[in-house]
Design a protein around this nucleic acid. Structure first.
Length: 558
RNA sequence: UGCCCGGUGGUGUAGUGGUAGCACAAAGGACUUUGACUCCUUCGACCCAGGUUCGAAUCCUGGCCGGGCAGCCA
């Protein structure tokens, strides 16, 4: 987080503009409220709002690109605002909407008609498509292309008033049906949509298309640098065309490469499908790569911003390894997380030589690397739970945990030795371990300075809280999920992206928790309370990310 | 076979005519009351071919490869 940003090509352009005398820098973040923000948007947010923070006379507007009421809702507006704030960015006291400019945009359209640069086309949608030509063949002019100015204005006004059905007419820019750039083949500026708009209600029956609305909204807001992704490069000539024909403030569009990530899906269309088909539990499902999902998973905003910084801004297309994101959270959480002990696959341990009804409280550090976190007390008693995986009857040489006759340290408590394994008669699985402890090793160190091979975590069974722990894993098992075929969506999902542990046993201090507090359950990973799923009976904790685990990794090979 | 954008280790990124650096990942080791953290080491790259130049990842030309564009979506 502390390293300075190397200057990317966009900041370089802006700096050079400032050096040439540009006195105000204005960027904008322009989401369409038709879905939740995801990790890909975070890059753009960090870029646009980041520039505004770095430069003295710079600001970044939040502008909802709400030109298609059919797909947009206020739920999405609210989630977007919340996510930007949570990431730590501000847009000042005004929140802008493209719909604020519908009247000005309409006037601009009238102006273009008067300049003979726009016309009402009454071809059917099919005819328009057919006459657009193809990638290799030019299009054909519409038969309506040379309507008179008066007729065009009359038609447009009546479209606006709602006198025609959807699809009856559109307003088009009159540019060049033979252009090798498809965007310049008389692009549609307005279409008739008779849907209530979340901001303007029923004021309008026509809505502006992206290319017409976006650049001119930038211009109205005096946006100096309009930053967008590479798929808009081909739209830039059109962006400039509207500004030039109308002779308005010259905003400049600059494109950068979109960020994709391995093991996940980032297109809004597919994320929407995951939600609608109930493959996940809503837009904020902790498996979703949405900002809301990641927040619920337990991510910090700092780790997301650090990720964006490390990924950087270029014109290349890129697929970032999700391991980098995981590294960023681990690094941040390692500093910020309170350590706790929790057992997610409990195995009962009875300490034979410990007094029956005794409870003693042992001191544990809340963060061994940072004394300011302080300490807490953990109850210890005769019956404990340890992790099933921490016991092996016939261990390999490298196994550093509990086995018969071997001594292991219970973290912050005592050294114990296992005497006997009680097994389930049917399955042969260990169900209880009979152990002894060494009273002289309280706190975890021995007077003779002997060192056990390993240290394991535990909880006192009488004092522990039973809770639900959700172990989340990557959304897709394949690094580059192929969703080119829509029907394949289900197949690319990782069937083990969620494992629910209903019988987790937590140390009692976890009773008072809050989703803003980050925890490390020692030796397991980073966890965070799920406010949405927890209730007065059961606490639910989500695993944000596991700890790095060189043991299981090394063990897999042989 | 139109127009546009891009090709630096496995991944992301730096480099702006002068010895190709950093991070993540991977492998090994040290340390360890978390098989974590930290530290050390190792592995590993300029798409290709010409040209310009004393010198090219960088400039030019031509290929090759990847991506985007034919919504009344954004």
């Amino acid at each position: 987080m502390n390293e300075t940003n190397t200057e990317d090509f966009i900041r370089e352009i802006i700096r050079s503009d400032v050096e040439k005398g540009l006195s105000e820098v204005v960027t904008r973040f322009p989401p369409e409220p038709n879905g939740y923000l995801h990790i890909g948007h975070a890059t753009s947010i960090c870029l646009n709002f980041g520039i505004a923070k770095e430069i003295e006379y710079a600001k970044c507007n939040l502008r909802f690109d709400d030109t298609n009421p059919v797909k947009e809702t206020t739920e999405f507006i609210e989630s977007i605002k919340k996510d930007i704030q949570w990431l730590g960015f501000e847009w000042g006291d005004t929140e802008f909407y493209a719909s604020n400019y519908f009247q000005q945009l309409y006037s601009h359209a009238i102006t273009l008609i008067k300049l003979k640069k726009a016309y009402v086309d009454s071809q059917t949608q099919n005819e328009i498509r057919e006459n657009r030509g193809t990638l290799t063949e030019p299009g054909k002019n519409s038969p309506y292309r040379n309507r008179s100015i008066d007729e065009n204005i009359d038609l447009l006004e009546r479209m606006k008033k709602g006198e025609y059905e959807e699809g009856a007419h559109v307003l088009r820019a009159k540019i060049d049906m033979g252009s090798p750039n498809m965007n310049m083949r008389d692009p549609v500026m307005y279409r008739i949509i008779k849907t209530q708009h979340h901001q303007t209600g029923e004021d309008w029956s026509i809505y502006p298309m992206y290319d017409f609305a976006h650049g001119l909204s930038d211009s109205i807001e005096k946006v100096t640098h309009s930053l967008c992704t590479m798929e808009y490069v081909d739209h830039r000539p059109l962006y400039d065309w509207f500004i030039n024909e109308l002779n308005v403030f010259p905003s400049r569009q600059i494109e950068f490469g979109k960020v994709l990530m391995s093991h996940t899906i980032l297109s809004k269309r597919n994320l929407l499908k995951l939600v609608e088909m109930k493959y996940v539990d809503g837009w904020d499902d902790p498996r979703m790569p949405t900002i809301s999902g990641m927040r619920r998973l337990g991510f910090t905003s700092d780790s997301i911003k650090d990720f964006c910084r490390r990924v950087g801004i270029t014109k290349r297309e890129n697929v970032v390894d999700i391991a980098l994101l995981e590294h960023c959270v681990r690094e941040d959480l390692n500093k910020k997380a309170e350590r706790r002990m929790a057992v997610i696959n409990p195995l009962k341990v009875t300490i034979e030589n410990y007094p029956q009804d005794q409870t003693e409280y042992l001191i544990a550090q809340n963060n061994p690397q940072d004394e300011s976190f302080g300490t807490r007390e953990i109850p210890f008693s005769k019956e404990l739970y340890i992790e099933k995986e921490d016991f092996m009857e016939n261990p390999s040489k490298k196994f550093k945990r509990l086995s018969i006759g071997e001594e292991v340290r219970l973290r912050y408590a005592y050294f114990i030795k296992c005497k006997e394994v009680i097994k389930d008669e049917l399955t042969g699985e260990p169900v209880e371990l009979i152990c002894t402890y060494d009273p002289k090793t309280k706190g975890g160190s021995a007077p003779d300075n002997r060192k056990p091979k390993g240290t394991i975590h535990w909880v006192s069974s009488k004092h522990s809280i039973q809770s639900e722990v959700r172990l989340y894993d990557r959304l897709c098992s394949d690094p580059n999920p192929d969703i080119s075929d829509d029907s394949n969506l289900e197949n690319v999902l990782n069937p083990h992206s969620l494992e629910i542990k209903k019988n987790a046993q937590l140390e009692p201090s976890l009773k008072e928790s809050d989703s803003t507090i980050k925890y490390q359950f020692e030796r397991l990973g980073y966890f965070c309370l799920d406010n949405k799923s927890s209730n007065s009976n059961t606490l639910v904790f989500n695993r944000t990310v596991s700890l790095r685990d060189s043991w299981s990794k090394a063990n897999k090979g042989g």
